[in-house]
Nucleic acid binder design. Structure first.
Length: 231
DNA sequence: AGCACA
């Protein structure tokens, strides 16, 4: 519903982002937050007047995008709830990969956009034409696919670590996790070897650490499995 | 509010 009637796309369009966040940090945080849903091929964010506060995250799979749209909808990100939809068009990086990227066509589209802006400025009519929408077709509440996929826990400032070697100590994990901003503490339970909880100040910081250390091997047999702790 | 590919 919040996705409007835009058909599924492997790229998601995010708006209502905090415009004060610097572009590079924004991209990093988006990457950290969204890579749990699948492989991210590209993130586009521009700070021009028209495009600030928005970003596109390109996934390698549509199912990943679908999960992200649903599960991260309204997620408070830098104090503002993210509004997520499918992107309206195919990302250039996808078109390039498919070999369908047409540079000429691209330039024409750009020129066309520019033309329309200028035109709009020409007839700066006091009461412009009513762009009345008819509400569109009664779209089904969900895009075509059932998307029977494993649920990802909601983001949490506490991480749940599994598959640790038996001899892991909290000091070892401390060293590993405290390199990431917002680190608070590691908690391990004597009676339960192989797991740990690592707390950060907020969801974003925990996500950054998760992304960075996901699969990290303390021993060759023990790639860390990091997920969000259950609330 | 705003759908791009610096």
């Amino acid at each position: 519903m919040l996705t409007g009637d835009i058909p599924p796309n492997q790229t998601i369009y995010i708006k209502n982002l905090n415009e004060k966040v610097k572009k590079e940090e924004l991209k990093r945080s988006l990457y950290a937050l969204f890579s749990q849903y699948g492989r991210i091929l590209d993130i586009v964010a521009l700070k021009t007047t028209k495009l600030r506060g928005q970003a596109w995250v390109v996934f390698s799979e549509v199912t990943a995008a679908s999960n992200a749209v649903r599960q991260m909808q309204n997620f408070p990100f830098y104090d503002k709830p993210m509004r997520i939809q499918y992107a309206k068009s195919k990302s250039d990086c996808i078109a390039r990969a498919e070999g369908t990227y047409d540079k000429k066509k691209k330039q024409e589209e750009k020129a066309e956009r520019k033309r329309r802006v200028e035109e709009a400025q020409q007839n700066a009519t006091p009461n412009g034409p009513r762009a009345e929408s008819n509400g569109g077709p009664a779209a089904s509440s969900r895009p075509g696919r059932p998307s029977a996929q494993e649920a990802v826990a909601d983001p949490n400032n506490i991480l749940f670590i599994q598959n640790l070697p038996y001899e892991t100590t909290s000091m070892m994990l401390d060293v590993l996790f405290k390199q990431y901003p917002g680190f608070r503490e590691v908690r391990m339970i004597e009676a339960k070897p192989g797991i740990a909880f690592v707390e950060f100040e907020d969801d974003i910081q925990s996500s950054v650490a998760m992304q960075a250390l996901q699969g990290f091997k303390i021993t060759p047999q023990n790639p860390m499995a990091i997920s969000y702790a259950k609330k």
